[in-house]
Design a protein around this nucleic acid. Structure first.
Length: 817
RNA sequence: GCGGGCGUGGCGAAAUGGUAGACGCGCAGGAUUUAGGAUCCUGUGGGAUUGACUCCCGUGGAGGUUCGAGUCCUCUCGCCCGCACCA
């Protein structure tokens, strides 16, 4: 039995046995002790790498721990299988996206199995399969019925050479990833989901979530609710007397008297109208072209040249009748507010910069306390609190944008005068779900000359993605599917006349917005899921994933659940109760990425040292929430560290005795159970392993084989981290049944606590002596022991201490003047 | 610009306001071994000093609160991450 630790000798066979015996299967109808534990499902881009291994090992260790604590655990896995990289790979290598995706899934699944993750494989979800995406289509139609899906035009980046739409990823350097040509902007009619109907709920219902403040505040900023007023200006062309009402949103209606110009978004149709037929038309079009070539990221860049174009019009300020110049500019976005602003350069930084660049006037209307702003000498906009000046009836009013002090009074006055109304505005925009892509869920809509836009009837679902279609465009037809006549040409479900299908596919964030619900009922072919099953398992108790999904994925999933709740499909408002963001794993300071070859693949790590070592070293190397950078040449060494510790465990525990556990060792075991339990409760996996290492050190000092109860308690503690080794030893001891179905060991509180402790004696906060004392020692006893200490007497010089602070039983501080 | 985070030995890191550096790597010395590897033992923040004791310094920097600060507060320097300009 004194054989060497050889993980390859038994890992695979245990993996097979666990699966055959379905020891990790989740029941369909759990009770109150249910725990839904889930990781963000991977995009199948290749084999699993160490970044995946970190996330999944943390989650698996916790799932195993909770299972041993008596929870009914559901721990499922799936694949986010639609998406752009499959098409890119297909174009590069001439493989069908499905083939590429499925072979990657096979590779990943094999690594996931080898790593011993405790998934219930019967619940696996693959989003590119028709039995999944038909429910995307079902959901889309339900949204459509509720008025939550609608079409309008929106611009895309179009490569004129490759005849294809470019995603941000394919445009990283501003030119087409394949041919290097500069993209042009095309306006396409696209589908949107009306997520803005749920902005308030998405904001307000965040309260009960046990998520990090960082993620919550990112979501809050994303939704960006701001209180302010809509104020109606009148616009007039310079050579006309016709006045047109034009509302603008402002959070600072108190600064209306400081407005010195008016700005329209460059792409605002009204701006184009103003110059139409004049000699300014051509230069204006050129200006707009330039602006549209800027990415939104450029337009929001902090510094840099702001593009502007003066328009032949004036805007009339409703509060004082003043006529202001009208400009078009790149820093005003069509999609926010009304696509126009009143500019108050003295009190807004962007307006200030634009005014300085274009020689526009600056007028101060808020004076901060204790100083006087002078438009001539200012070098930035002032947006803090102060007192209104030169502001008509409001001169002398104190205002504060943080507390809204004074601002509400202005809004009230505007409403009374009919010049504006209170208004809440959001930064969040509706969710564009149309993609001009092959590898996605076809949008189930038919266009008929007679009936217009017609939803595909539910009984016709799924609208199958044609297998043999081209997956890149070959002409100006925007979506690849448009080239497939068999797909496009259909019959109108309403009137029976010839009609054509929608050829766009859905954003893959649609797939990932509800996959966790499908885990609860993966084989249902009558509905996306059964309400009762979802209500029993959900919400997800613990969700593990990276911070990169802080906003989009997590907001979209929350939105779906709220809509489903309104539809009566489920009865909870939030999908994910607790969210754990694991740190990022990098290699040599760079993100691990398949495409740059900067990866440590999971299979290589398992091959070298076995799955338990891979799991142990990734958990021990850094705290779960911290980033971890693999040294470029350090993988060998790090893997060996874990392997050699597990070998030590193997050596020390391969033989056990039937003797009783001697008291001292028993205490060590109980102390360790308590410490490890406490660490696990806090996700302290690295420190839990450290505590176990200490116990192994105690075991190895023990004379002779370790008594079996002590060894078994230890194996149970280690089981969530190293499931194979612990299972193997557990069975070698003669136990029946899996260690992973055992209960987590209890500890005896008295045994876990030491009866003798080292009391630290400080003088003025510096350690001067250590005395071993009973753990039951009182403050008075501590004080007298401290004062009696020779070391302390030296500092007292025969005098009395000024003060003694005793913190039983470990610390006493003698304060000497 | 906005939002979030992080700075502790040669390295990964620990530390409810209470002994800074647990645990581990690495390194040094020793044991074992034909050798290497593996294993076991001892030591290991910096400095001064000693036969041993012991003392001083030390958590990016500067202040502050406190009997006591890596931890709390203010300022500051550096690094990292996310983002769709709160009009």
């Amino acid at each position: 039995m004194k054989d060497q630790y050889d993980p390859h000798a038994f890992e695979e066979q245990w993996s097979r046995r666990w699966e055959a015996e379905k020891i990790y299967a989740a029941p369909d109808d759990p009770g109150k002790t249910k725990r839904f534990v889930m990781e963000m499902f991977p995009y199948p881009s290749g084999d699993l790498h160490m970044g995946h291994v970190e996330n999944y090992t943390i989650a698996d260790a916790m799932a195993r721990y909770w299972r041993m604590r008596g929870f009914e655990v559901m721990h499922p896995m799936g694949y986010d299988a639609f998406g752009l990289p499959a098409e890119n790979a297909a174009m590069r290598r001439g493989i069908h996206p499905r083939q590429w995706t499925m072979s990657n899934i096979d590779m990943m699944r094999s690594s996931l199995r080898r790593l011993g993750y405790s998934y219930d494989w019967s619940r696996e979800v693959i989003s590119c399969n028709p039995d999944y995406y038909r429910w995307n289509q079902w959901i889309f139609l339900k949204f459509y019925e509720r008025g939550l899906a609608y079409r309008r035009t929106s611009p895309v980046n179009w490569c004129p050479v490759d005849k294809t739409v470019l995603a941000r990823e394919q445009l990283s350097t501003g030119v087409c990833w394949r041919c290097g040509s500069v993209p042009e902007i095309r306006d396409l009619t696209q589908w949107f989901l009306k997520i803005t109907d749920y902005s308030d709920r998405l904001l307000d219902e965040m309260k009960g979530l046990q998520w990090s403040d960082s993620i919550l505040s990112q979501q809050r900023n994303w939704i960006g609710r701001s209180r302010g007023a809509e104020v109606t200006f009148k616009l007039r062309l310079k050579d006309s007397q016709d006045l047109v009402d034009f509302p603008v949103f402002t959070t600072r209606p108190d600064t209306l008297w400081g407005a010195t110009f008016f700005v329209l978004a460059a792409e605002h149709p009204l701006a184009r109208e103003m110059v139409a037929g004049t000699e300014q038309e051509a230069p204006f079009d050129e200006f707009v072209e330039e602006v549209r070539r800027e990415t939104e990221v450029d337009r929001m860049a902090a510094k840099g040249v702001r593009r502007g174009f003066e328009l032949p019009a004036v805007a009339v300020n409703p509060v004082n009748g003043e006529e202001l110049p009208v400009w078009a500019a790149d820093y005003i976005l069509m999609g926010y507010g009304t696509g126009a602003i009143m500019a108050v350069p003295a009190h807004d930084q962007r307006d200030f910069e634009f005014a300085r660049e274009n020689g526009l006037p600056v007028r101060v209307v808020v004076q901060p306390e204790g100083q006087t702003l002078d438009p001539e000498s200012m070098n930035e906009g002032y947006s803090g609190p102060g007192t209104l000046v030169n502001s008509g009836p409001f001169t002398g009013t104190a205002v504060d944008p943080d507390t809204h002090e004074g601002i509400d009074k202005v809004i009230e006055w505007l409403s009374e005068k009919g010049r504006g109304t209170a208004k809440v505005n959001y930064r969040q925009r509706d969710w564009l779900v149309s993609r001009q892509r092959y590898w996605g869920t076809p949008i189930p809509i038919v266009y008929c000359d007679e009936c217009g836009e017609v939803p595909v009837p539910y009984e016709h679902l799924p609208v199958l993605l044609p297998d043999e279609a081209e997956y890149s465009s070959s002409d100006d037809a925007v979506s690849p599917l448009a080239n497939d006549k068999d797909f496009v040409n259909t019959i109108c479900p309403r009137c029976g006349e010839p009609a054509s299908r929608e050829t766009d596919t859905l954003d893959t964030f649609f797939d990932s917005s509800w996959y966790f619900l499908r885990y609860c009922d993966p084989d249902n072919d009558e509905a996306p899921f059964k309400t009762s099953k979802v209500n029993r398992w959900c919400p997800v108790d613990n969700y593990f994933g990276g911070v990169e999904h802080a906003v989009m994925h997590l907001i979209y999933a929350r939105f779906f659940v709220k809509v489903f709740q309104d539809m009566g499909l489920l009865s909870f408002p939030e999908p994910f109760l607790r969210l754990f963001n694991q740190g990022h794993v990098s290699l040599g300071g760079k993100e691990m990425s398949k495409s740059t070859g900067n990866v440590i693949e999971a299979a290589a790590a398992i091959d070298a040292y076995g799955a338990d070592s891979a799991r142990t070293f990734i958990l021990f190397s850094s705290p779960p929430a911290a980033d971890y950078d693999f040294p470029l040449d350090g993988f060998e060494q790090i893997g060996r560290v874990a392997h050699s510790w597990l070998s030590r465990v193997w050596r020390v525990l391969s033989e056990v005795s039937n003797g009783a556990v001697p008291p001292e060792l028993d205490r060590a075991v109980h102390r360790t159970i308590k410490a490890v339990t406490d660490e696990m409760e806090e996700f302290g996996l690295n420190t839990a392993i450290a505590r176990m290492m200490e116990l192994v050190n105690d075991f190895s000092k023990f004379d002779g084989p370790v008594p079996r109860p002590a060894a078994e308690a230890f194996l149970k503690l280690l089981a969530p981290i190293a499931p194979y080794l612990t299972e193997e030893l557990w069975h070698r001891y003669g136990n029946e049944g899996s260690i992973h179905l055992q209960r987590w060991p209890d500890y005896d509180r008295e045994k876990a606590e030491a009866d003798r402790v080292v009391m630290v004696v400080q003088v003025n906060g510096k350690v001067r002596d250590r005395i071993e004392v009973s753990a039951e020692i009182t403050k008075d006893e501590m004080t007298s022991l401290a004062i009696a200490s020779e070391r302390v007497k030296a500092y007292l010089n025969g005098g009395e201490p000024h003060k003694v602070i005793a913190v039983p039983p470990k610390l006493v501080n003698v304060v000497v003047r």
